[in-house]
């Protein structure tokens, strides 16, 4: 049985996750399986449907931003989807790359708020908080992205659109190489059948990781990591009583995520060199001197 203080921590981290992320696995699965009362996502499977989606989804997401929560709009210079519209004159691959950046920036903002709500995180040295986010956000982002993916494609624009895997593969290189490794990871990761409560603890464990380069107070971060990992282990045992190897299998995914991020950073570096495209300042900060 799980001690009472562990149960409290599970609830706090799960609540922080549900509060801070606009999309979660339960919502995404409802949309992907067609079990929602909302309109079906607009399917983007070629350049024509992509261009149509740029016009309709941008308007839709913007309307939602103005009417909805301001939670994720802390960086005043970023409005996802608007970027896509403003860059319409540029070629499709580059525009898609910019849309991905806007979504990434939004998720990094949400992840920061989530991290701040993890008990103990804000007591860490501010430099260490920066380090943990710098190295953790992309691993966390690809974990969360898996919830929006199935073998055929990925949900975008808060579930308003669905980009097919085949369309992403058909883009010119290097853009075509961008998403396929994420789909492969997502297929393996989704077979673990985690729910949002499991994912919330896993994402917290990714962020609070004691072996990131340049940490000032390693023992304090390790102590926080140890607490979260123990809570994750106990939570998995109670939440998945018939899958006793889930915890070790999940820990193995941490290594896969590191590899995925290293590959991704290299690809972004290549795109920066060979394409006439810009990188958002927040993402520049994260990638700079990363690995």
């Amino acid at each position: 049985p799980m001690p009472a203080d562990h149960k409290v921590l599970v609830r706090q981290i799960h609540d922080a996750y549900m509060k801070n992320f606009t999309m979660n696995k339960a919502k995404a699965r409802l949309i992907l399986t067609g079990k929602t009362s909302k309109p079906q996502p607009f399917i983007i499977h070629n350049m024509e449907t992509f261009q149509l989606a740029e016009k309709t989804l941008a308007a839709h997401v913007l309307a939602e931003h103005h009417g909805g929560s301001e939670n994720s709009l802390h960086i005043g210079d970023v409005v996802p989807a608007l970027g896509c519209g403003m860059l319409r004159q540029r070629e499709a691959e580059a525009r898609l790359f910019h849309c991905c950046q806007s979504t990434s920036v939004e998720t990094v903002t949400e992840l920061t708020e989530f991290a701040k709500a993890v008990p103990g995180f804000q007591s860490l040295d501010l430099n260490d908080q920066v380090t943990l986010l710098k190295y953790g956000v992309y691993e966390a982002l690809f974990t969360l992205l898996a919830s929006c993916m199935n073998k055929d494609g990925v949900l975008v624009a808060r579930g308003g659109g669905f980009i097919t895997r085949e369309f992403l593969k058909s883009l010119r290189r290097p853009f075509s190489d961008m998403m396929e490794p994420k789909f492969q990871f997502a297929t393996r990761f989704n077979s673990l059948e985690l729910d949002d409560s499991d994912l919330s603890l896993f994402v917290a464990a990714i962020i609070c990781c004691g072996d990131r380069p340049g940490l000032v107070d390693v023992p304090l971060v390790e102590q926080l990591q140890e607490t979260i990992v123990q809570v994750l282990r106990l939570h998995l045992l109670t939440n998945h009583p018939n899958d006793s190897f889930l915890f070790p299998r999940l820990l193995q995914k941490l290594a896969d995520l590191r590899e995925l991020v290293t590959e991704h950073a290299q690809l972004v570096e290549d795109i920066k060199k060979t394409e006439d495209t810009s990188l958002h300042p927040l993402l520049q900060e994260i990638y700079r001197d990363m690995y």
Partner: peptide
């Protein structure tokens, strides 16, 4: 480190919507 990561730093220092 915070100097080289001004936006991350700012996001961390911003008062969280959860605090209010």
């Amino acid at each position: 480190l915070t100097e080289r990561h001004k936006i991350l730093h700012r996001l961390l220092q911003d008062s969280s919507p959860n605090d209010s």
